[in-house]
Simulated scan of single mutants.
Amino acid sequence: MKALLSIDYTVDFVADEGRLTTGKAGQAIEKRLVDQTRAFIEARDYVVFAIDRHDAGDHYHPESRLFPPHNLAGTSGRELYGTLAPLYQENQTSEHVYWIDKRHYSAFSGTDLDIRLRERGITELYLTGVCTDICILHTAVDAYNLGYQLVIDAGAVASFDAIGHEWALRHFEQTLGAKIIAKED
């Protein structure tokens, strides 16, 4: 069984005016990411939207020392970006679609993600979203350590750091044993 994790594809991480945007790199993956998400939904495979959530004024969170405030609860910056938003809205009540608020880079850290995946017999995870070398990477490492098989679509992940993005793709394949789907496929 397989599941798709859609990680942090929000206004703050993708839109030109986003607080911590990947900009054009993140925008360029929209069609592929949405098409892949739609295919999983139509196949009735499990789709998890793992979305960063921070509170305004939380100066204790370690990210507050590294990045500007982003994905703040109750702001438009935390909304899903582009055509992914209506796709989620149309399917949010499906038993095959789940939303996780996450506070850390990894979708597994402090969430019930592993329990939900195991309840459904899921062993293979497709990771999409942003940022390849931060939240996708940390989620992939945790997934690997928990025994999941990984598939990363290079055309459905992006970062604001091109060097970090390429390094992470190599790391997924060479160190975590992930299957990488080439951008051209």
Rank of each mutant, 00 (worst) to 15 (best):
R53D: 03
R44Y: 13
V151Y: 04
C131L: 15
L113Q: 05
Y60H: 11
T37M: 01
G129R: 10
L66S: 04
L127T: 03
N71L: 05
E30L: 09
D58R: 00
L125N: 11
R120I: 08
T111W: 02
L146I: 01
Q27I: 11
L84P: 01
F49M: 05
D35I: 07
E30A: 08
E79I: 04
Y88S: 06
Q149Y: 06
H61E: 13
H138P: 02
I136F: 06
C135T: 11
D45L: 11
E95Y: 02
A73S: 05
A25V: 07
Y126F: 15
T75M: 05
A50T: 03
V141K: 13
V34Q: 02
H59F: 08
D35L: 04
L150K: 11
L33M: 12
T75H: 02
L113D: 08
G147K: 13
L125F: 08
I100W: 00
F108M: 04
T93N: 14
H61N: 02
D55R: 13
H70W: 02
V130P: 10
A143Y: 09
A73L: 14
V130A: 06
S109V: 00
E90V: 02
A56H: 05
Y144A: 12
R38I: 05
F49Y: 15
V141N: 07
Y105T: 08
A140C: 10
I152C: 06
R53W: 07
R116E: 12
L84F: 05
C135N: 05
V47D: 03
P86R: 01
G129Q: 08
G74C: 01
L33A: 13
A25N: 12
D114P: 04
D101I: 01
R32H: 08
H96Y: 12
Q92H: 15
I100F: 12
H59P: 00
L20H: 12
H138T: 03
A107G: 14
Y144W: 13
R44K: 15
S64P: 10
I122Q: 08
K102C: 06
L66A: 13
Y60M: 09
